[in-house]
Design a binder for these strands. Structure first.
Length: 1085
RNA sequence: GGGCCAGUAGCUCAGUUGGUUAGAGCGUCCGCCUGAUAAGCGGGAGGUCAGAGGUUCAAGUCCUCUUUGGCCCA
């Protein structure tokens, strides 16, 4: 108990914290908090599963620190906070990593290698970095249960995901459609966006302007033709519509006797300058629904989208006015095109098939022609038929297959979708109830994304993922079923081998006869796996194998009170959690109707979303504001940073370094600053307490003086401590860590250490009497007791280590309650200290200006506080603090506004602005020019009527702000409502006392240099000039007492000082002093 | 190309509902203190609040545009 710790902490935070960590491990601290709060109200936290496929970076330290500090805070509020770890283990990143390991790449090579061995490799690869993740998380104090994590590839987890998907299917919200994907016709495979980005190359394509003559168009539009532009003529045979922007104004122009429609700004580029005449305009939306003459006549092809119309004008605001004509030719080979076709029911027919070759003979192009090779033939044909208005070469960057260099096409492939658009409004409504920190992410980024919601393209044509539990009848593609469990699979006759694993390829081999009455045929699973975002969004249920197990428990732990991830998760985890929860709890009425499932009770999950509040954190950039990347080599390794600074310093600087959601720069020097300035100060404050508690044998169990019996400054620091605590609670509850921590920093550094302890030091060694000492000990103990608990969520290591020393208890600070003592708040007491702090600062500034060091006592300090009457507690209670801080003999408090003070009145814009309105400026100058008497009258509580633009205007005391400017006859300074004057005249007495203080200073310095302890008694011999001698004679007793020289000071003659052991000191004013000192003992006394 | 966010001192960041001295820490210069001492404290200098326009008696704060950077999506 009361061992000093700051030296150990500051010199080696890493070793210091590891010791704390070991104690936590030994005591199983997480378990302890849960047991201690077994019956407490739960605070539900969901851990977003990291991909264990890459190393943890410093940005992960940020979000883990945020999560941890909020959870620790809530635990200290008495809540039960479960913290189950989780791992996101499926998906493309894992596959890519394994491809790298195997030295293969792309789907054909994976299949050649074998899906089984490949997936086996994925399963193991996932945990390559698991240990590193756990170590870093553990080391930063992220309290999480790693013993029993949820893992998205585990059989139970997958089964829960299947169950959820089956619920979508049972509500008719799972459907098969097409999705346009980057596709290599030669390799016959889709490519991931990651692969596409590797293969961009410049390529020349024909750039063609095509006309689409309208049919049966009314008015000005009769006989006119739309003009569209494309660089992919091979898609023209598959044209299904022309898209215009609903808001654009299109020009109707005449050229060579024919009418065309396009953006006016684009007409010159097509027809040439002066070759056309604008004859009218039409708005995009007025063109909607018109039909036009098809470009080509042909039969066959593959219909990929059934519909009721084709070759019509549709509208959408994806159309831009950049390249082209403001009109877009639409074919099924484009993602936007396909989306609109689905929305508007256009028939989509492919002329080019999945191998990149034409499927039919048309317009001189033979079936089997490679898609790009048809461009010229098609262009010639169109030109001959007058449908091609212009052709250019166009060089642009185009994606190629990175494996075989073949230009890619975008190709519609079969895909499975969740009809999320059917509950878009519910998602938006629920989102409005979620507390977002910061709010603008929820309203803006996430809200925007929800309002533009499109159906969730769920399937992935990949290997390592949760297999889509959809089995299709080989004989009838419309006969399909989405399974809800392994049991159902088995009951249908799908045989599962021993140690069944639901992954590909094992699951692909399981077939059964169709259960549909009246149908025959073998049911075979579709080849796809699902988007791994669905996996992670399923975690509230799947982490506990719901609804197969833990139905009650999940109902209690749903929804989350709090989640916290990076801003990049907006459209990832935040969305998948939200969408699944809203479907499950608000759309799936059938599931909840009976209150049972499979004959067992099914407690209802609260209808709503998956989370009540979200804290979003920004990215971490390097110290120059550049994103960290392997390529640039500017990645900060968390382990190294922690080894250097310790986790607490990093946690502190992350939690305070700017608003959590903004991207911020990682600054190494900022971290060491936090360590020194804040954590160093806190530990030094504790050390100070511990040092004197030990030497004075102070015991926390002795009765402590009542609050009313303590000094004003004690009540002040206790009040401030309680205020800081209340602000901190508010900040944490608002999910604004900055607001929680800034008041603490101010309190600990400025108020506790730099003012309270500094001003009260003497009290601790009893220099101000026993009562004062007892009050000081009690106060500082109580303040530290609260402060360490307030710091515990932020810097869990240091707080716990100091807590155990302070309390002498083995019980961790993390099992305590957060201090909440609003009853100790005394606003008037807190406010009354402010003018004192200002006066002290002004006094130091004046001393600096007049070059009189603080050691030199001065006669008088004059203080004027212009709003003193408004303070219900007089700052005069703190007079002692000023006397000591500024080393003056006397403080004179000035009432009213005496003549020697110059005052200036200023308008209070805040109170006058609304009343004065336009005349505010005139009023301000009237007030500035008011004479002293008027000002005093107002200040004394009276009212004054002034003339304002010819109208009388009534002023009250609150309408002016008084500033004192300077004082005559002394060195003065002003800060707002506080003015001080310092009488700088040095009387012989003051000079003498100044010398005495210089002597004491030299004695103490020499004591330290000699290697003596601060509490060692010393024997002093000294010699000096006449003023030194005078000072010694007058103040010798005082010096001896302060310097702990029990037998006084021994004056020696000049002759003696030539001997060894005397040190020569120069004092200000050309005085000199020679001192010899040694440890005092009875022998040499 | 679209959506969202940000740009305040040399650096990292605060800045409440618009209100007249725009703050803090670090760095820098100068100084102080010494019974927290391999610490600590203070003072000074340093800002046309990214740029332009607008609303208002009053704009770092509200609106519009431009510009730079970040995140996500095409």
């Amino acid at each position: 108990m009361f061992e000093p710790r700051s030296r150990a902490y500051l010199s080696s935070p890493d070793a210091f914290e590891k010791e704390v960590l070991a104690a936590w491990k030994k005591a199983n601290i997480l378990q302890q908090t849960l047991e201690a709060r077994a019956d407490a109200e739960p605070f539900v936290f969901y851990e977003g599963p990291p991909t264990a496929n890459g190393r943890p970076g410093i940005h992960h330290v940020l979000s883990r620190t945020l999560k941890d500090s909020v959870c620790r805070f809530q635990t200290m509020r008495g809540k039960r906070v479960m913290r189950k770890a989780g791992w996101d283990t499926h998906g493309l990143p894992v596959e890519l990593e394994v491809e790298k390991q195997l030295g293969i790449s792309g789907k054909p090579e994976i299949e050649k290698h074998g899906i089984g061995p490949f997936n086996e490799k994925c399963r193991h690869s996932v945990f390559t970095y698991k240990e590193e993740w756990e170590q870093v998380s553990d080391r930063i104090g992220y309290m999480l249960d790693y013993a029993d994590p949820y893992v998205t590839f585990h059989k139970d987890y997958v089964e829960s995901v299947w169950f959820l998907l089956s619920r979508f299917a049972k509500n008719d919200l799972l459907y098969r459609g097409s999705k346009v994907l980057p596709w290599c016709g030669r390799c016959g495979t889709g490519l991931s966006s990651h692969e596409v980005s590797q293969g961009y190359a410049d390529i020349d394509d024909p750039s063609v302007w095509i006309s689409f003559p309208l049919q049966n168009a009314p008015g000005d539009l009769a006989g006119a033709a739309l003009v569209a532009w494309t660089t992919t003529p091979w898609t023209l045979p598959s044209n299904m519509g022309v898209c215009v922007h609903p808001e654009f104004e299109y020009a109707i122009v005449e050229n060579d006797g024919k009418r065309f429609i396009l953006l006016q700004s684009k007409a010159e580029g097509v027809f040439g300058e002066g070759n056309f005449e604008v004859v009218g305009t039409v708005t995009g939306k007025d063109l909607a629904g018109l039909s036009y003459e098809p470009l080509f006549q042909w039969e066959g092809g593959t219909v990929v989208q059934e519909g009721d119309k084709v070759h019509v004008v549709v509208v959408d605001d994806f159309v831009s006015d950049g390249d082209g004509t403001g009109m877009v030719h639409m074919a099924p080979y484009g993602a936007d095109d396909f989306r609109i076709a689905q929305r508007d029911g256009l028939i989509a027919t492919l002329a080019v098939g999945s191998e990149g070759r034409f499927l039919v003979d048309l317009a001189g192009v033979e079936a089997g022609t490679f898609f790009r090779d048809a461009n010229k033939t098609l262009a010639r044909d169109l030109k001959e038929r007058g449908r091609l208005l212009k052709i250019n070469q166009y060089r642009h960057s185009y994606p190629h297959c990175w494996r075989c260099d073949t230009p890619l096409l975008y190709f519609p492939s079969p895909a499975w979708f969740l009809r999320t658009t059917s509950f878009k409004e519910k998602m938006e409504a629920q989102n409005a109830k979620v507390k977002w920190s910061p709010p603008e992410i929820g309203e803006g980024r996430f809200g925007e994304w929800l309002s533009n919601n499109i159906d969730w393209a769920l399937s992935r044509d990949r290997y390592w993922g949760t297999p889509l539990p959809v089995w299709v009848n080989e004989e009838d593609p419309e006969d399909w079923i989405c399974l809800e469990s392994y049991a159902e699979l088995e009951s249908l006759g799908g045989e599962q081998g021993e140690n069944f694993d639901p992954h590909r390829p094992e699951v692909d081999d399981i077939t059964f006869e169709t259960p549909t009455p009246g149908k025959t045929g073998t049911m075979r699973r579709v080849p796809q796996v699902i988007d791994c975002w669905f996996d992670s969004g399923a975690m509230p249920y799947a982490q506990h194998h719901w609804p197969f197990e833990n139905r009650e428990f999940v109902a209690e732990q749903f929804p989350a009170d709090f989640i916290c991830e990076g801003i990049d998760q907006t459209r990832g985890w935040f969305y998948s959690l939200h969408a699944i929860a809203i479907f499950l709890t608000q759309m799936d009425e059938d599931l909840w109707k009976s209150g049972e499932l499979w004959g067992e009770p099914l407690p209802r999950l609260e209808a709503g979303g998956a989370y009540r509040s979200v804290m979003v954190n920004g990215m971490i950039l390097d110290k120059s504001g550049v994103k960290m990347s392997k390529r640039l080599g500017n990645i900060v390794n968390p382990a190294e940073a922690i080894a250097e600074h310790g986790a607490d310093a990093i946690r502190w600087s992350f939690l305070t370094g700017g608003a959590a959601h903004l991207s911020r720069r990682y600054d190494d020097s900022g971290v060491s600053e936090a360590r020194r300035r804040v954590l160093g100060t806190l530990s030094a404050s504790y050390d100070f307490f511990a040092l004197y508690a030990r030497t004075e044998n102070w015991d926390p169990s002795t009765e402590r003086p009542a609050l009313g019996d303590r000094e004003a400054i004690d009540r002040w620091i206790l009040s401030r401590c309680a205020e800081a605590g209340q602000e901190s609670i508010q900040g944490w509850e608002d999910l604004l860590p900055n607001n929680a921590i800034r008041p603490l920093e101010r309190f600990l550094v400025d108020e506790l250490s730099n003012w309270y302890i500094r001003r009260c030091r003497r009290r601790f060694w009893g220099a101000e009497g026993e009562a004062s000492q007892a009050a000081a000990f009690a106060t500082l103990f109580e303040v530290l007791h609260a402060s360490l608990r307030m710091m515990a969520p932020i810097t869990p290591f240091l707080a716990d280590a100091l807590w155990k020393e302070l309390t002498g208890s083995e019980e961790s600070v993390h099992l305590q309650l957060f201090p909440e003592t609003p009853e100790s708040i005394d606003k008037p007491i807190s406010e009354a200290m402010d003018p004192i702090l200002r006066a002290a600062s002004l006094g130091r500034a004046v001393r600096e200006r007049v070059q009189i060091r603080v050691r030199q006592p001065l006669g008088k300090l004059v203080v004027h506080i212009s709003n003193e009457k408004a303070l219900s507690v007089s700052p005069r209670a703190y007079e002692d603090a000023l006397v000591q801080e500024l080393n003056v003999k006397q403080v004179e408090w000035i009432d009213g506004t005496p003549d020697f003070l110059e005052v200036e009145a200023k308008a209070n814009f805040k109170s006058l602005g609304k009343r004065a309105g336009k005349n505010m400026k005139a009023l301000a100058s009237t007030i500035a020019n008011m004479d002293r008497e008027t000002v005093f009258k107002l200040q004394g509580g009276g009212t004054v009527e002034v003339d304002l633009a010819g109208e009388p205007f009534l002023l009250e005391g609150d309408d002016i702000l008084l500033q004192t400017q300077s004082a005559e006859g002394m060195e003065a300074a002003t800060d707002g409502y506080v003015t001080i004057g310092l009488v700088t005249e040095l009387t012989p007495e003051l000079e003498c006392e100044g010398i005495a203080r210089e002597i004491l200073n030299r004695l103490q310095t020499q004591r330290k240099e000699t290697g003596l302890e601060v509490s060692d008694r010393i024997r002093v011999r000294l010699h000096g000039d006449a003023p030194v001698r005078a000072a010694m004679e007058k103040h010798g007793a005082w010096i001896a007492k302060e310097a702990l020289a029990p037998d006084g000071l021994h004056w020696v003659e000049a002759a003696v000082v030539t001997a060894d052991g005397f040190q020569l000191w120069e004092l200000p004013g050309n005085h000199h002093l020679q001192v010899a000192l040694e440890k005092f003992s009875l022998k040499n006394a």
